[in-house]
């Protein structure tokens, strides 16, 4: 019963089994019209269990095959980094894992069930998604936006935790300072953190983050990936699309490298982030050095020799 021991976070030990939905008190009309599929609150996944996987997935967008035969699994308790050059299919694979795109071939399973067979409400209890960019049609306050992440839990016992969970998510992403400001008045980096807080507040066993660090400064990039690690340590499956290979090397348990719609490598950072593979995939010579402390791989582009680097070359051209 190791499964039992590991699941001690969101729900108490006696609540792991499917908890029936607490009946909301709707009016007669409400009951007639808001006919919902019965929701079952998911039991937490055992560590190492597959939270989401693609099997031989192919996706065609606008006539072009953007994913071709991708097999990938996101496991509970693990941070999986998706990396690859622009146009490699990272976002499409991400969308496939989120259940957002129709696949041409193969299948996507979330929590062991084909993604398309989950209803939106049930899927929302199992996976949270941070999109690459966020916009908002109306000027909701930051705290309200984060609280939207709790919407899937409305009517379940977990809804009692809403206040605490929202406060924790805002503290973790350091957005409490502008809790009352309208979302639309924030900078790009601040918006990204608020959206992350919203996804965290959803408290799902599968967390999908699409380039969460793209708009962030150095401190907040580290902060976000530490959050990923913490969620993985707590038993969640975290999938994160990254451009910064250094971040992937430092924080991911597993790195999946995409190129031209195919998965070209999938494994621990140390074995995947090799100079020859990356040089070929990114069409840019790179060196991989061990970090002086700890030995995590450092990925550095190879720059023209001579000690002066690119700026030196510019001057040389001027002459």
């Amino acid at each position: 019963m190791t499964e039992q021991q590991e699941v001690t976070r969101q729900l108490g030990a006696d609540e792991q089994r499917d908890v029936p939905e607490r009946p909301e008190p709707p009016g007669l009309l409400g009951r007639l019209l808001a006919r919902r599929a019965p929701r079952r609150v998911p039991a937490p996944l055992a560590r190492g269990a597959v939270a989401a996987e693609t099997r031989d997935v192919a996706v065609r967008l606008g006539g072009r095959l953007v994913l071709d035969g991708v097999d990938l699994a996101a496991r509970a308790g693990e941070v999986l980094a998706l990396v690859g050059p622009n146009g490699a299919g990272k976002s499409t694979l991400f969308a496939a894992l989120a259940g957002d795109v129709a696949v041409e071939r193969g299948g996507v399973r979330v929590y062991g069930r084909p993604a398309e067979r989950w209803g939106a409400a049930e899927l929302a209890l199992r996976r949270a998604v941070l999109p690459q960019s966020s916009s908002l049609a109306f000027p909701f306050a930051v705290a309200e936006v984060v609280a939207m992440g709790r919407a899937p839990w409305a009517g379940t016992p977990a809804a009692e935790e809403d206040g605490r969970v929202v406060a924790e998510a805002m503290a973790a992403t350091e957005v409490e300072r502008f809790a009352d400001r309208p979302f639309s008045a924030l900078s790009g980096g601040e918006r990204a953190r608020v959206s992350l807080a919203r996804a965290l507040a959803q408290q799902t066993g599968l967390l999908l983050l699409d380039e969460p660090t793209a708009a962030l400064d150095l401190r907040h990039q580290e902060l976000v990936l530490r959050i990923c690690r913490r969620r993985a340590a707590a038993g969640d499956a975290v999938v994160v699309v990254l451009h910064d290979l250094g971040l992937a090397a430092a924080y991911a348990d597993r790195v999946a490298v995409l190129s031209g719609g195919r998965l070209v490598a999938d494994g621990p950072p140390a074995s995947v982030l090799r100079a020859e593979l990356l040089s070929e995939v990114y069409r840019q010579p790179v060196e991989v050095l061990p970090h002086p402390h700890g030995g995590a791989p450092l990925v550095v582009p190879v720059r023209p020799a001579g000690g002066t680097g690119p700026r030196g070359t510019e001057i040389a051209v001027d002459r």
């Binding site: 957002d100 899927l123 209890l125 999109p131 109306f138 309200e144």
Partner: peptide
């Protein structure tokens, strides 16, 4: 309220 986030995010939140 959730739809204000956009269609996909709203669907991700169970709408």
């Amino acid at each position: 309220d959730l739809l204000a986030l956009g269609e996909r995010p709203a669907r991700h939140l169970g709408v």
